[in-house]
Structure formats: structure tokens, C-alpha cells
Amino acid sequence: MIPAILFWFFSVVAVASGAAVFIVNSMARASYALAVSFIAVGAIIVQLHLDYIGVITILMMVMEMAIMAVFMVMYMGMNPALMPMDMTHHKHRSAIIAVAVFVILAGGALFIPWPARIGVPPGDVTASLGQALMGSKMLVMLTISPALFATIVAALVLANPRGRYDRLGDSLTRGGADKGTAPEDPIRGGLGR
């Protein structure tokens, strides 16, 4: 009984705050409405006894929305993000797509012949979910993820116009041993570089 009430409560919060993202008139409110929606989803995941994944979802999503709000405010052209603004565009087409997707998904959920449960849930649901998702591909993922991460960092380092290659030259020696021009840097890093 209580789990059912909690589930419905969190579901309604998740859907309602998800809808609020498009109804509110400020970027900050939209971002944090989305954060509330994700928190409710995280709580539902905890209800599935996937404690770790649920709490991590809340952690990551609050962090992401905090950063996203900054970017949303920053990238709105002519800065209407600081004024009340409409969160929707292409209204008719988006409405048609949204209704169609909802009908397909909801219809699928209602009409699919759900299989009967075989066996019982394992003791550690998180571990078995990890096994089911990753399983034999774990080694591949472990190899790929540092490579992906290194790519992101390298792209940022090269693209950043105020980064160290820009300031210190291609071999990071400007203003150093070669007696070149010191970087014209009004703000030095905390380590004095």
C-alpha cells in the first residue's frame, strides 16, 4: 500500500515537473523543474531497490541541472534568459510529435503481451543489473571510457582560447627557458603558472 502511494506520488511529481519545464517562463525555473523531475525519477529507482543507481541519478542530475542552468542563461541570444520568456517553439509540430510518440509508447505498454515473471529477483539487484547491462562487455567499456574521457579533455585543452597552449606556446615554453614573450595573462593560476 505505502510503496504504491509513494510510487504514484513520485510519478505524478516527475510528470508534472517535467511538464512545468515547458510552462514556466524562466530558464532558471525550467532547469530546476527538470531537476525536480529527475529527483522524483531517482526516488522511483530507489523504490525498485536499486539504491545506488537511484541516489547516483539524483546526484548527477542535480549537478547537471545546476551547470545547465548556467549554460542556458549564457547561450540565449540577446539574453532573454534574464527576462520572462516562452519555453516552447515550433508549437504545432512539436505537439503533433509529442502526441504521436505518447500514443505509440502508451499503446505499446498497454497492448504488449507482458511475459509472466520467471523466478524471483536476485538478492543484489544493482549487481545483477550491472551484469545484465555490461556482462562480458565490461573489459571493452573499461578500455573505451578512459579513451573517451581523454578525447574530451584533449579537445577542450586544444579548443580553449585561453588555455595553456594559447598562453605558453605549442611546447609550453614561452616565457620559460627560451626567453620568449611571457604570456600576457592578467589572472595567473593558483599555482603561479
Binding site: Y52, V55, I56, V62, M63, M65, A66
Partner: peptide, 16 residues
């Protein structure tokens, strides 16, 4: 069972 992660999630809440 994941109290440590819980604490971390709450301190991220402070960002917001």
C-alpha cells in the same frame, strides 16, 4: 546501504 553516496548527493544539492 548507500549512506556515503546519499551524503554526496546532498552536498551536490548545495550547488543548486
Amino acid at each position: 546501504p548507500t549512506g556515503l553516496v546519499w551524503f554526496n548527493a546532498m552536498d551536490v544539492l548545495l550547488w543548486a
